[in-house]
């Protein structure tokens, strides 16, 4: 085990902090993408605070690892990670969606340092990631590319076009993460538009597939480490997650895909994550 128990604790603590920041960012009186942001908080913690080779002082460093948030609406989790790393001042988190803010409702890289692509129209991030990974191969750079998608998002046909590009061009520098939180905007995937089975689909498209508990830091760490060892094909990590994980009143509820918290709910949620 390359990671100490202490590091695992630290990553767990950071995931909690990211959730706290997500709740703070949304606040009350305006809707926000709480569900999908909280479901990826543990994955974000491991990527940004353990796995990725990045330099917050040099966001355009050519050899940095790249993270593309294809499910752009969950960018709150990424904003929280970037702020905690010092890409921009923590105070700016309070400006989410305000006119002129760098914290747009969906990620805009020209406004915000540390973002690698514009996403928000679902299904495009994996293709962009393939392009970044192809360029890495061309330039013989050893950076790695991580792309997170939702299990509702993969109904977009472009995802499967990209999945073929990744396997055809043997993009072993690319790791996909499927945030399998089982709920899309209008309700449970299984009831609305079932995109299952997942692992089998990705395997059939030529990917190495790992399935994990997306809230178990140790499993997440192990999966990203394992993906690095795979040669000749991309890896997809199917992460079983819970929508709005960590916020009990919102967990597994479609209404919190893009929901508004009451003052009471907000206070409750904030309390949950205060150390």
């Amino acid at each position: 085990m390359p990671v100490t128990a202490e590091k695992l604790k630290e990553l767990e603590k950071m995931a909690k902090k990211l959730r706290y920041d997500i709740v703070m960012m949304i606040g009350t009186g305006k809707p926000g993408h709480l569900g999908g942001s909280c479901s990826i908080a543990d994955l974000m913690s491991v990527l940004y605070f353990y796995k990725m080779r990045i330099d917050p002082k040099n966001p355009k460093w050519p050899d940095r690892d790249r993270f593309v948030i294809s499910k752009g609406h969950a960018v709150l989790a990424q904003y929280a990670a970037l702020a905690n790393l010092g890409y921009f001042p923590m105070d700016d988190l309070g400006t989410l969606k305000e006119l002129g803010t760098k914290l747009q409702g969906h990620p805009e890289m020209l406004r915000m340092p540390g973002l690698e692509a514009n996403t928000g129209s679902l299904g495009q991030g994996l293709s962009v990631s393939c392009g970044i990974a192809l360029a890495g191969k061309l330039d013989k750079r050893d950076y790695r590319v991580y792309c997170i998608m939702g299990d509702g998002e993969i109904a977009e046909g472009q995802v499967w076009e990209a999945s073929m590009t990744a396997s055809y061009y043997k993009l072993d520098n690319l790791v996909g993460i499927l945030d399998k939180n089982r709920i899309q905007a209008m309700g449970p995937i299984e009831k609305r538009y079932d995109t299952n089975p997942h692992a089998d689909k990705w395997r059939a498209f030529g990917w190495n597939v790992l399935e994990i508990d997306g809230h178990n830091i140790e499993e997440i760490v192990a999966a990203f480490d394992k993906a690095e060892q795979v040669k000749g094909k991309p890896t997809m990590i199917v992460a079983n997650t819970v929508k709005s994980k960590g916020v009990p009143f919102a967990e597994n509820k479609a209404q919190f895909h893009h929901g508004m918290m009451t003052q009471e709910q907000y206070d409750t949620a904030r309390e949950l994550f205060v150390d």
Partner: peptide, 22 residues
């Protein structure tokens, strides 16, 4: 790069290449 008959993916892949200096 032959991208197969998939123009939507092709455009976004190109964006990724451009974002990496191509």
């Amino acid at each position: 790069f032959e991208m197969g008959i998939g123009e939507q993916n092709m455009v976004s892949v190109a964006a990724g290449l451009a974002l990496s200096g191509k």
